[in-house]
């Protein structure tokens, strides 16, 4: 089905454009302006050119934070997307079980992010927290405030707990949109469960999975409140992700210029990855293969 060509459709988009543009473009321009100046206070500023960019790009702590961030977001996507899809597949299609599992799944999403970190501090405490006591009871030495690996496990666990339901909810909504006729046809053909998943359910979920992957990538790459409250970026710098380092720079040292330059580089990295994901995911399974020249 070819869409209708009509530039008057712009009038329908205009309200969205205006509402978002004011909040988006003016602050973006201002941050770009900050990034090329040394700002001492209101009205007191000196143009410094690309000095801040040079400083930020040569900052080895930023390189470390970027590598940590990439590993973290990669891990989060690798765990949450398959797990979320598996949960959606396991959920009942009708009956009271639907309401119960939907509501329970949504609960972690509804807690403000700073509270999540705080609750997990206690939850993981080896003396008074449920999971901490449980792990120690199994005889595993686990100490997230001092051992970097344990801190990583904790932060990833918290992130998976918090956000996998989002993937599951989206995937479930996508699954329910598949007409029953498809499954009947598959049953008549004697298709295995795997074949049904691979050739019917997965392709039909592509649209929602694009949303899920991109949302999870963007939000996990920008994650701040939960790990900051839980570990403060420590022990040492082992869980200092990009946003945590950025806030240290912007608020802790009050270096507006370098922090602005950092923000722009950060934004460009997210933009690049999101664009590549967006392009790649749109094309998977649509027959528009690389090298398929027309």
């Amino acid at each position: 089905m070819e869409k209708w060509h009509d530039n008057r459709a712009w009038f329908l988009v205009l309200p969205v454009f205006l509402m978002v543009a004011i909040s988006a473009i003016i602050p973006l321009m201002t941050v770009v302006n900050y990034s090329v100046q040394d700002i001492f206070g209101p009205g007191q500023r000196v143009f410094v050119g690309i000095e801040w960019f040079r400083e930020v790009l040569g900052d080895s702590r930023l390189h470390d934070a970027l590598i940590r961030q990439l590993i973290f977001s990669g891990l989060v996507l690798l765990i949450e997307i398959p797990l979320g899809v598996a949960i959606a597949l396991a959920m009942p299609a009708r009956g009271w079980g639907v309401s119960v599992s939907l509501v329970l799944l949504a609960l972690p999403l509804l807690i403000p992010w700073n509270v999540i970190g705080t609750i997990w501090i206690i939850f993981m405490r080896p003396d008074i927290g449920l999971l901490g006591v449980l792990i120690n009871g199994l005889g595993i030495p686990f100490d997230h405030p001092t051992a970097p690996l344990d801190a990583w496990v904790t932060v990833v666990l918290m992130e998976v707990w918090h956000w996998t339901p989002l993937v599951a909810l989206l995937a479930y909504a996508g699954l329910r949109a598949i007409p029953d006729a498809y499954f009947q046809a598959a049953r008549i053909d004697g298709a295995s469960a795997w074949a049904t998943f691979r050739y019917i359910q997965l392709p039909k979920m592509r649209g929602v999975l694009v949303i899920a992957v991109l949302l999870r990538f963007m939000d996990s790459f920008l994650i701040y409140a939960e790990p900051f409250v839980l570990t403060g970026g420590g022990p040492g710098n082992s869980t200092t992700f990009l946003s945590i380092y950025l806030v240290k720079l912007a608020v802790g040292q009050f270096d507006l210029g370098p922090a602005a330059a950092f923000s722009i580089i950060y934004f460009l990295i997210v933009l690049l990855f999101s664009f590549v994901f967006y392009q790649a995911l749109q094309r998977i399974g649509t027959g528009d293969k690389p090298g398929d020249r027309r």
């Binding site: 869409k3 209708w4 060509h5 009509d6 530039n7 008057r8 459709a9 712009w10 988009v13 969205v16 454009f17 978002v20 909040s23 988006a24 602050p27 973006l28 941050v31 900050y34 991109l214 949302l215 963007m218 939000d219 920008l222 701040y224 990009l242 946003s243 950025l246 806030v247 912007a250 608020v251 507006l256 922090a259 602005a260 950092f262 923000s263 950060y266 934004f267 997210v270 933009l271 999101s274 664009f275 967006y278």
Partner: peptide, 25 residues
């Protein structure tokens, strides 16, 4: 429903608004 001037770019631009790190903004 419609194809119009810059539709795809508008769509992606909307998404970019979720991509900026808030701290400095």
């Amino acid at each position: 429903r419609f194809r119009f001037l810059g539709d795809k770019h508008m769509f992606f631009w909307l998404l970019t608004n979720r991509m900026a790190p808030p701290a400095v903004f």
